[in-house]
Design a protein around this nucleic acid. Structure first.
Lengths: 222, 222
DNA sequence: TGATTATCGATATTATAATATTGAATAAAA
DNA sequence: TTTTATTCAATATTATAATATCGATAATCA
């Protein structure tokens, strides 16, 4: 009898932990592990085991077994399914300069189901050329080409003052998800997702921790 | 009489919004704005005005004035102070290959108070050379040189299977904050911060949104 | 076969963050 | 000077996520 367990709600936070679980599970599976307990997983990541159990319960089709733990292989299948690494998504890149063009040669992107099919830029030195085998068009063509190619993902790697304009063109071209590497907030209509990758935010967190730490050690030296 | 307002607690979420506020405030200040109301800021970012007021209250030394709003210049000063953009932090880069070396030429990093002073790698083709004027040493020297240079920030840009080892060496060298671009969880002793920059996580979020969106539009076409 | 123990799932509690409500303050207009 | 519109601050509420508690289950061992 198949006990089709109703999956609990998966929070955004939990969703973001999934790639980490997946990477770890794949590693221990390759090393021969068949079962894994929530306690061991929790120890590895520094989480609580309750959290790990809840996370697994929210994605897994098979329940854990007392004294045995969870089926590693099944978990891998379920998480890969959830993350959608199977189906490949096509994306375009806006801003193919020094920073942006690194995306063309970045292999790990492919691994996670993203394929960059074209680049756009306003610099005439690179427009019309190919970078790592991918064509670079002028930015004025963004909407037109996105529509024609049915592309739904856009990567923004242009300077901040050009980001909103690039974003608008992508949206006009039917793009539904934007990976934003500029440092500005992007306004988009409802239904379009902006995923921000903001260096300034990360650096602020690093810098704050460091300042707090150094100040503390100064006052209370061991 | 100076009303020294006791600042409310600043949540991590709120802290991460600060770089966005700062960028926006600087822009409107350059355009001549002296005061700004929480409503306008909220509109720009798609936040609620209550949230904006709370965020500002948590960092600003000056309260907002009814009918006038907040002093733009004062906010800029307060947020810059909070984020620590004034003082520069020195960092080392582990993994100076195709991806890692882009950090050397990345200008925006400097702007946010980070200066990369050296790189490390295990590839003998680049060890001993200079990339964009910065020396690249062999990875076996990480701890030793970090100690000598008193560096407290490390950037990890090596393949996943080498990340934990690199991390350990940095920690041994006295590094207190690690910017992790690998896709694995890093174990560190208490007191050391790991800031993850995980492409897999972002791509998962993008991919999920897209799948949900496309599936929905398929079922309920407009 | 029965006791033991590791591990699970479900429910309850607490912590954190976002939003709604209310009343007060202030600049500008009447 | 009084009124009005706007915007603020403080408190209360709700939403979200993390953690703690407890009873149940299944493999192991006596």
């Amino acid at each position: 009898m198949k006990t089709e367990t109703k999956k609990p709600h998966l929070s955004i936070q939990a969703f973001q932990r999934m790639p980490y679980y997946l990477q770890y599970l794949k590693k221990i599976f390759a090393e021969g592990a068949v079962n894994i307990s929530s306690r061991l997983v929790a120890q590895h990541f520094g989480f609580t085991e309750i959290q790990v159990r809840k996370d697994f319960a929210a994605v897994s089709s098979a329940a854990g077994i007392p004294k045995h733990g969870f089926d590693v292989k099944q978990l891998i299948i379920d998480i890969e399914e959830l993350l959608g690494y199977r189906n490949t998504n096509e994306a375009v890149l806006v801003g193919a300069g020094a920073f942006g063009s690194t995306f063309f040669k970045c292999d790990s992107i492919k691994e996670y189901g993203l394929s960059i099919v074209a680049g756009f830029d306003i610099n005439n030195d690179i427009v019309g050329k190919q970078i790592h085998g991918k064509p670079v068009f002028h930015s004025s063509k963004i909407s037109e080409l996105c529509k024609r190619m049915q592309t739904h993902i856009g990567i923004i790697a242009v300077p901040s003052d050009q980001a909103q304009e690039a974003c608008d063109k992508l949206v006009e071209g039917g793009v539904l998800a934007i990976w934003n590497f500029s440092q500005v907030h992007l306004s988009v209509p409802e239904g379009v997702l902006v995923q921000n990758e903001n260096m300034a935010v990360s650096l602020a967190l690093l810098s704050k921790h460091l300042q707090d730490k150094l100040k503390k050690d100064e006052v209370i030296p061991k």
